[in-house]
């Protein structure tokens, strides 16, 4: 639908949060917890972190939780009874105050999970999400959304977007039918936009550092450039921090937890950075060294996904770089690849 543009007083945010909470008990927002900023269910406006760049973890956990039970079963006298968890009743969930790079991250996740055959768990959870994002008015040295097709005011994936503008006011963009229904809850607080607002002027400045098409071409061409991958990943210690905080990493592991009588099948986050990820039962590991795993990480995001799913598997949020124990700054590595 055509976006509806409104203006709201920043001071009204607390009232909006109250109204949302009244209608949607599962209201998630960024909450400061010591060094972390986490997306959590809030009770009111005062719970929301005041000054945050983005949440430590991405929002993917709301549609793709780190532990998802996909099957229950019981074993009785040789009889196996299976039961799939009910996916029709996931509660409606509002994500309030997430960033544009998180909202647009669902593009990749949806392409992966709902590609050929929709994944009922992802699909059902995602359908219940109402996404109210806040455009970024600041960025840090890790941000590079503008280099991968995004921008600090990108509305893709959001139902409503707020942008702080002058005079303690916020620009409100109502972007979808879902967003319109939610905005009706606080329509009395919205006023019409008398004159056009130059949204761009209020956004963070995130310079474009590389041409993503060059990255796509060059990663695809560089599969056999062993020294490139070894040099880039020499300091990589092979943990999964990057993949687990990433808004688009979707690889998972299936594990059964059971006793003699019953069990559950779980879908768990996994990471291509782990040596176990590709270890065969025979003992052979086709990605036997870390450089091959690092290559896989970049090839998947910048070669296989663009080719097969027509999306780039990166939103430029920089979480992987911030979380990396050894400062593997992906922006630098992508720039190096673009300049090959």
């Amino acid at each position: 639908m055509e976006p509806i543009i409104k203006i709201i007083k920043s001071a009204s945010l607390a009232t909006i949060v109250d109204k949302l909470k009244g209608r949607y008990p599962r209201l998630y927002a960024p909450v400061k917890k010591q060094e972390l900023v986490e997306l959590e269910v809030i009770n009111g406006f005062n719970d929301i972190a005041q000054d945050y760049l983005l949440t430590t973890q991405s929002v993917k956990k709301l549609a793709f939780p780190r532990v998802e039970k996909i099957l229950d079963y019981t074993l009785q006298k040789g009889n196996i009874q299976q039961q799939s968890p009910d996916t029709s009743n996931f509660p409606e969930t509002v994500l309030f105050g997430i960033r544009p790079c998180d909202a647009s991250g669902f593009r990749s996740l949806t392409a992966i999970f709902n590609g050929d055959k929709p994944d009922e768990f992802y699909k059902s959870r995602y359908e219940k999400l109402i996404i109210i994002s806040f455009a970024c008015n600041k960025a840090d040295a890790y941000c590079f959304c503008t280099s991968v097709g995004g921008n600090p005011g990108n509305t893709e994936g959001s139902d409503i977007q707020f942008t702080p503008v002058d005079n303690d006011e916020m620009l409100v963009e109502i972007l979808t039918e879902k967003g319109k229904a939610v905005a009706d809850l606080f329509s009395d607080l919205l006023s019409d936009c008398d004159k056009p607002v130059d949204k761009q002027a209020y956004l963070a400045n995130v310079p474009v550092v590389f041409d993503v098409n060059k990255v796509i071409d060059n990663t695809t061409k560089s599969f056999n450039n062993e020294m490139l991958w070894i040099n880039q990943s020499l300091r990589c210690i092979g943990c999964g921090a990057c993949a687990f905080v990433c808004p688009t990493c979707a690889c998972f592991d299936i594990q059964d937890e059971q006793n003699m009588k019953q069990g559950a099948r779980l879908r768990l986050w996994d990471s291509c950075g782990f040596s176990l990820f590709t270890l065969h039962t025979s003992g052979h590991n086709p990605r036997h060294i870390q450089s091959h795993r690092w290559r896989q990480r970049l090839m998947h995001k910048f070669s296989y996904m663009p080719e097969q799913l027509k999306v780039v598997g990166c939103e430029g949020c920089g979480r992987c770089s911030r979380a990396c124990p050894v400062d593997m700054n992906i922006k630098e590595h992508l720039l190096q690849i673009a300049e090959l």
Partner: peptide
């Protein structure tokens, strides 16, 4: 989140 950064 079991990223195993501690182990690595």
């Amino acid at each position: 989140i079991k990223c195993y950064a501690c182990r690595s």
